[in-house]
Design a protein around this nucleic acid. Structure first.
Length: 804
DNA sequence: AGCACGCCGACT
DNA sequence: GTCGGCGTGCTC
């Protein structure tokens, strides 16, 4: 018996199955989808069994047996194995990357080099002895000095030391010491009597146990409750009053929270119509994709909940994706409230262990609904009944490193596998999805009204050029300042939005015009006043604020541009009575701080919630009556064909935060380009006219959804090398693709250097290009066999979410 | 001769 | 990706 194994090595010639002999003792147990340890070259690596067979073409002298079978229950389902092949083809990634992306990171291998002493008669050199410090075995870290490493290598060769790789799972299953108390009271009594009166503590413990016969309790809890020590407990166990067992437990991030269960809400006609179309298709077991276009506050979530309820009736499972879920506890809570313990939550705020435990609950079918961010689309359910992507237009559904998959594509693939519907929901659908819905590839469902018929908030656009002309140089227009004062008087809440964190976005010398740039990236450093530092938002570089110009030594250094920190200060100056909560990457770094800020705001502990785009989505507080967008221009002028679309989406989403309940909402948008159609249409909540206008632009410049694009990015530490290979790539594409494709570039990327690597890119635009998969595969091969060795890094992104 | 370093190819 | 093998060139 042989197993085809994909080994945990990402390299071009390795990117295929290797055949291994299955040892006798594993023949009954092994299944495809299990992890194994295998000898590979002269080391041990982790691998995934993708198939079993009785024959092989591999000559006998090259056949090696599997070292160890790691899973009795395979970690990969058959569906995942099929999905892997599809992912590999469609994202041009290594098969091993496709496999690993479907599993929680806890299951990834952790390789350790273990150094041991073989010959004790040899005196080891001082430096090696220091490493061992009397121990028999130590872990050898790669960051030891070169001299030491080569010395060790020599000693290993001479058989004085031994070097082995150990493979461990990154995070283990959490276990607790569980005490099982003897259930036979008589026997407990006997034990009690047998304990000498001197062992008072032991008597106490057994006495307590006699009140709790047959119960189970976690060892630590028992010790705490009886304020005793492990020694006492051990003695009691030895006498037979209880037994100790290691038991698996789940780390539960929601352990200390209780929630009131909610029941179905009554649906509006529109909601009902949408739901019955979905359920119809569900009943027919169609793999149909719905685009649920519902204005903000129109009750999309209730439609999701009731569609899921239908699937649960048949004991099928549901996957719900939300964009970066930890940002929207309000959203996850709605699922927890409706479906209680049937819900697993997967998001980036959980620890590796917590994610692993949620994953195991899903795998074992202990939960039926998973709510999670992008990677939750790989939830290991076996009987999926419905898949939902909320805010389907969000860029976070596209993974921006290998494998560069889009959760929407995976969702549709899985829906075809399980014959179940997919619901894509949004108030501002992506142009791609809306175009597909109009063409009939997706089924369009529309919710044009809010359930309680609340009006959409009034949006006014303020021309900041006029403010400047009238002598107002503040970042608050008169209109916005007035509106803020009104809310402060009425004790209503506000959300202020600015898509830029930090204090000032650049530091400029007024004498020579120098802007302080990051030493590793071609990007200006942002001033952060709280730590009195300047930071690069791309690579994390930090340094002291210069007091003189690094170029000309002038002291006329000034800070320009506005970030959330500066706005916070301005609010304190202009509205001293206002209580402000700032929410951006800088204030939400700690685990749970996100929820904490929102909780404070929900309890009315602040008047103003000031933040970056993380506050644009999902907030639902009844007392918010004003939303202020301090500058709508930040996203509008990016060098990306989706800039207008992103701006429209953002404005519509933030506007939706106001007036969701009884009180009417107002939105004030400040901009230097009020005439721009994205701002105009967002002002009037006009998605369809915006869509039509934007489609005309896309058509004119041949951008998606009229074409498909592929972004190819080349980076290297040396500019000339970067440019050279970018040209090579572009020329190769021009020579090999048909003239149905347009190849743009190479050009320097808009951030031309990042983390000390220069960046060039080219773009392929095509409507139909039958040769594309083949050509890209060949380009990848050239890169992996040849260019990589020269330090070039190349990435190919099909349907990139941004071309910057 | 003895070894450091870089390049090449193999890995079931 | 990571190892060993092998060639080149430098040093004692």
């Amino acid at each position: 018996m042989y197993a085809e194994v994909i080994v945990d090595v990402a390299a071009y010639p390795i990117d295929r199955p290797f055949d291994y002999l299955v040892p006798e003792q594993y023949r009954e147990l092994i299944e495809s989808g299990s992890r194994v340890k295998v000898p590979f070259g002269n080391r041990q690596v982790l691998g995934f069994v993708t198939a079993l067979k009785s024959e092989t073409d591999v000559p006998t002298d090259k056949q090696k047996p599997i070292g160890e079978l790691l899973d009795i229950e395979p970690v990969l389902t058959q569906e995942m194995l099929e999905m892997t092949k599809w992912l590999k083809r469609h994202t041009l990634c290594y098969e091993i990357d496709a496999l690993q992306v479907m599993l929680p990171s806890a299951l990834r291998a952790k390789y350790e080099k273990i150094l041991g002493i073989v010959d004790h008669n040899v005196d080891l050199p001082q430096s090696v002895q220091a490493l061992f410090q009397q121990r028999e075995h130590v872990e050898l870290k790669v960051d030891e000095s070169k001299e030491l490493l080569s010395l060790i290598k020599k000693l290993v060769k001479e058989d004085i030391l031994s070097l082995e790789t150990s493979i461990k799972q990154k995070t283990a299953v959490k276990k607790v010491r569980m005490i099982h108390i003897e259930s036979d009271l008589e026997r407990l009594k006997t034990v009690y009597d047998s304990i000498s009166n001197q062992a008072k503590k032991q008597k106490d413990v057994v006495k307590w146990m006699m009140d709790h016969p047959g119960e189970r309790i976690v060892s630590a809890d028992l010790l705490k409750q009886l304020s005793t020590t492990n020694a006492v407990l051990q003695a009691v166990i030895e006498k037979g009053a209880a037994t100790l067992q290691m038991e698996e437990i789940y780390r539960d991030p929601y352990a200390d929270r209780t929630m009131d269960k909610t029941t179905k809400l009554a649906l509006t006609n529109e909601q009902h119509l949408a739901l019955s179309e979905i359920i119809d298709s569900y009943d027919k077991q169609e793999a149909k994709t719905f685009l649920l276009h519902g204005i903000t506050g129109s009750g999309k979530t209730e439609v999701y909940l009731q569609a899921i309820e239908r699937a649960l009736l048949d004991d099928l499972e549901a996957i719900v994706l939300v964009p970066e879920i930890s940002l929207t506890p309000q959203m996850t809570n709605r699922f927890k409230e409706r479906f209680g313990s049937l819900v697993a939550v997967l998001h980036s705020g959980l620890s590796t262990g917590e994610k692993y435990d949620e994953w195991r609950k899903i795998k074992r079918g202990e939960v039926k609904v998973v709510v999670g961010a992008r990677s939750a689309i790989f939830a290991p359910f076996q009987n999926v009944g419905i898949i939902i992507l909320d805010e389907e237009h969000e860029g976070t559904y596209k993974q921006d490193d290998s494998p560069r998959y889009h959760a929407r594509d995976v969702a549709i693939w899985r829906s075809e596998y399980h014959n179940c519907p997919v619901i894509l929901g949004s108030a501002t659908p992506s142009l791609e999805s809306y175009a597909r819905a109009k063409k009939g590839n997706y089924t369009l469902l529309t919710l044009a009204n809010r359930p309680k018929e609340q009006a959409l908030p009034e949006v006014s656009v303020v021309d900041m050029r006029e403010q400047l002309k009238n002598g107002n140089r503040s970042m608050f227009s008169l209109e916005l300042a007035e509106a803020i004062n009104v809310r402060l008087d009425k004790q209503e809440q506000m959300v202020l939005f600015l898509n830029r964190r930090g204090h000032s976005s650049f530091v400029l010398c007024r004498d020579c015009g120098t802007v302080v740039e990051c030493p590793n990236c071609d990007i200006s450093m942002t001033y952060h006043r709280h730590q009195e530092k300047i930071k690069c938002h791309y690579c994390g570089e930090e340094s002291q604020v210069p007091h003189t110009c690094p170029e000309c030594s002038s002291e006329h250094i000034r800070f320009f541009g506005t970030g959330t920190q500066k706005v916070e200060e301005e609010i304190a100056r202009l509205f001293p009575a206002a209580r402000v909560l700032r929410m951006d990457v800088d204030t939400t770094r700690k685990k749970g701080s996100h929820e904490h800020i929102l909780k404070l705001f929900g309890e009315g502990k602040a008047d103003i919630l000031l933040g970056t785009q993380m506050i644009a989505k999902g907030l639902d507080f009844p007392n918010i009556t004003l939303v202020g967008v301090l500058s709508a221009d930040t996203t509008l002028h990016l060098a990306d064909f989706r800039a207008a679309e992103k701006t429209f989406q953002l404005l519509t989403q933030v506007s939706g935060r106001a007036g969701r309940h009884d009180k009417a909402g107002e939105v004030i948008v400040q901009t230097y380009t009020p005439e721009h159609y994205a701002i105009q249409f967002a002002q009037h909540h006009d998605f369809v006219p915006f869509y039509n206008q934007e489609m005309m632009n896309r058509k004119q410049f041949l951008y998606p959804p009229f074409t498909y694009v592929v972004l190819i990015q080349i980076t290297h530490e040396d500019v000339l090398m970067t440019a050279e290979y970018a040209h090579k790539a572009a020329n190769w594409l021009r020579d090999n693709l048909t003239d149905q494709s347009e190849i743009i570039g190479p050009t320097a990327s808009s951030i031309s250097r990042l983390q000390n690597r220069y960046r060039y890119q080219c773009l392929i635009k095509y409507k139909k290009e039958p040769t594309l998969p083949e050509v890209l595969q060949q380009l990848t091969r050239m890169y992996r066999t040849d260019w990589m060795k020269k330090g070039i890094l190349m990435s190919i992104d099909l349907n990139p979410s941004s071309i910057m």
